[in-house]
Design a protein around this nucleic acid. Structure first.
Length: 561
DNA sequence: GCCGTTTTCGGCCCGACTGTTTTCAGTCG
């Protein structure tokens, strides 16, 4: 883990315990600090050396000294003390839906329950219903929630929920009661994973729309069902919240439920300072509750004296300040991507032919693709040797002759060997249009070894981009230990790009690192890493990362023809 | 614990739903 991640993790933990102890505002302070550190493009270690820690928004004297302590010792006294002071089991019990800090504390103190197994037993024995304020229903809900907790996946890949969203929206649109519909929340912000889905429906008949929602086919359980708000679990335990609102309040609701929480808190604070109050129904004057804006997000942001902010930027990473001064970047649009700079075919471990991949890309409106099959070292993926690469090149030439308004580039995903040299000699590489150089082995090397290995590859004059630069697999494998600052410095000086690999469980580089790359003056390439013809569509996930990383068309290689 | 166009103290976003109550506390987002 990077030092930023280590520091943020501890600050988050402190924040969580403070929540349990009902110390809301201190908890918020730590949470805000942790969140800002997560989205920092600079290393906290560097800021510490420059004595600039307390210049991070949300970090004051106290948290700054905690950060120093974490960097020096890897732990925090405050956290240790807080852990000590918390009755054992409280945090575990809070994992259960419907159990918050108050109830958890009472269960521990009044029934001596310290883990979920004991909670389940107590509920089965009818020991919970006798507590004041509890009843049979609550007990049954606890049992149900425990069951769901045990089979729950915490977060879902953005790419894996896209089809669910399409299905849900077309089901809802079949009802005349549904006027407008959109999924808000982290999905709309295109985070790499989503915890749940927030469905927003504009309707004049909220009862009919809500009814339509809770009768959707893939529902496993209805958690709550009201006039304007309902919550369900889909099969696979994906939670979906649905809010039904009036058409004239759609913009306010969309803004509110898109978040992020941190973005909204900041926005509200600004609204308050300007004499407004902002909620999911609209922007109102504080003095007389007069409605100022509610129909569209643009109206609300404009009324607050700022530009409309694309959802992908709403993380309180400086976008509000930029919008206030009219200096938001024009982040890359989906249609500005002209080609896919990383696809595989049957020649290595893909399932489609070169022609099939080209046709699929053309159908998506692209002008070119770079065929980048694996190189010989990757035997497991039927990597190409020199002769097969040459054969493939001849085939590409032949296909290109018959293509109009579309071009297939000759490329390779060339293995970076453990000493940093490449799998093919320069005489081979110089014949190619696009060279993706990737690491596929030795993931556990020390940071300096890995960094040197990558920098050596960057110095090869035929390398176009570094493939999936950190090697992370979301929720499965952590990034390699790597000094990204040094890598970006080398890449900028050698004019080598960094890839945003758009495969759903990679999305590598991620948003924050992509932004950091840009700050070093590095260009980025977006590649779907498609291994089948329908996977070229993953490109849009990569574009979402670029948008979240504040990148413009200028920063991305494949906006060029 | 942090912050300041309400600046060194006092405030920190706010509404819906549930389950238990009989007017509300707790949880969630």
């Amino acid at each position: 883990m990077s030092s930023n991640a280590v520091v943020a993790a501890i600050l988050y933990e402190i924040s969580e315990i403070l929540t349990v102890k009902n110390d809301r505002f201190r908890s918020r302070a730590y949470q805000l600090a942790a969140q800002r550190i997560t989205s920092l493009t600079e290393d906290v270690k560097v800021l510490r050396e420059k004595e600039q820690l307390d210049e991070i928004p949300g970090v004051g004297k106290s948290i700054a000294s905690t950060i120093v302590e974490i960097l020096d010792t890897g732990q925090s006294k405050i956290l240790e003390e807080l852990k000590e002071s918390l009755p054992k089991g409280v945090q575990d019990l809070m994992e259960i839906e419907g159990i918050g800090p108050r109830i958890a504390m009472r269960l521990v103190e009044e029934l001596g329950i310290t883990n979920i197994d004991q909670l389940e037993q107590a509920a089965k024995d009818g020991k919970i219903r006798v507590l004041k304020g509890f009843g049979e229903k609550k007990e049954a809900n606890i049992l149900q929630s425990i069951k769901e907790f045990r089979s729950r996946q915490t977060r879902f890949l953005l790419g894996s929920v896209l089809p669910v969203v399409d299905e849900m929206i077309s089901w809802m649109k079949e009802s005349d009661a549904v006027k407008k519909i959109e999924v808000a929340g982290s999905f709309r912000r295109r985070k790499d994973t989503v915890g749940d889905l927030d469905l927003l429906v504009a309707s004049d008949a909220s009862d009919i729309a809500s009814e339509r929602f809770v009768s959707m086919p893939p529902i496993e359980r209805v958690i709550s069902h009201g006039q304007t708000r309902s919550t369900v679990y889909l099969k696979g335990h994906l939670q979906v919240d649905c809010r039904v609102i009036k058409s004239e309040e759609y913009g306010a609701a969309l803004q509110y439920f898109t978040g992020s929480k941190e973005h909204n808190v900041k926005l509200r604070t600004i609204a308050v300072k300007q004499g407004y109050k902002l909620n999911e129904y609209g922007l109102y004057k504080r003095e007389n509750d007069e409605l100022v804006a509610s129909e569209s997000e643009e109206q609300i942001y404009n009324a607050l004296g700022m530009q409309w902010i694309p959802p992908e930027l709403r993380e309180n990473r400086g976008e509000i300040e930029a919008a206030l001064t009219g200096t938001l970047p024009h982040i890359i649009e989906y249609e500005e991507i002209k080609g896919d700079l990383h696809v595989h075919t049957k020649w290595s471990d893909g399932t489609a032919t070169i022609v099939e991949m080209a046709e699929a890309a053309k159908k998506l409106g692209l002008k070119y693709i770079a065929i980048c099959d694996h190189s010989k070292s990757l035997g497991i993926a039927h990597g190409l040797n020199e002769e097969r690469l040459f054969e493939q090149g001849k085939e590409i030439d032949k296909i290109n002759e018959n293509l109009e308004d579309f071009k297939i580039l000759k490329g390779i995903e060339c293995d970076i060997k453990s000493d940093g040299s490449l799998d093919f000699s320069s005489t081979i590489l110089k014949e190619l249009d696009f060279v993706v150089a990737s690491i596929h082995s030795g993931f556990k090397s020390e940071a300096d070894v890995m960094t040197e290995r990558m920098i050596k590859a960057i110095h090869n004059e035929y390398v176009s981009t570094i493939g999936h630069p950190t090697g992370r697999i979301i929720q499965k494998r952590n990034p390699y230990s790597l000094d990204l600052g040094k890598v970006f410095e080398a890449a900028a000086s050698q004019d080598v790009a960094m890839e945003i690999n758009a495969f759903p469980d990679r999305l590598d580089l991620d948003d924050v690192s992509s932004q950091k790359a840009k700050e070093y003056g590095v260009k980025l390439s977006i590649g779907s890493d498609a291994h089948a013809s329908n996977q070229i569509d993953f490109l849009k996930l990569g574009i979402a990362v670029a948008r979240r990383g504040w990148l413009t068309a200028e920063d991305i290689l494949n906006t060029k023809i």
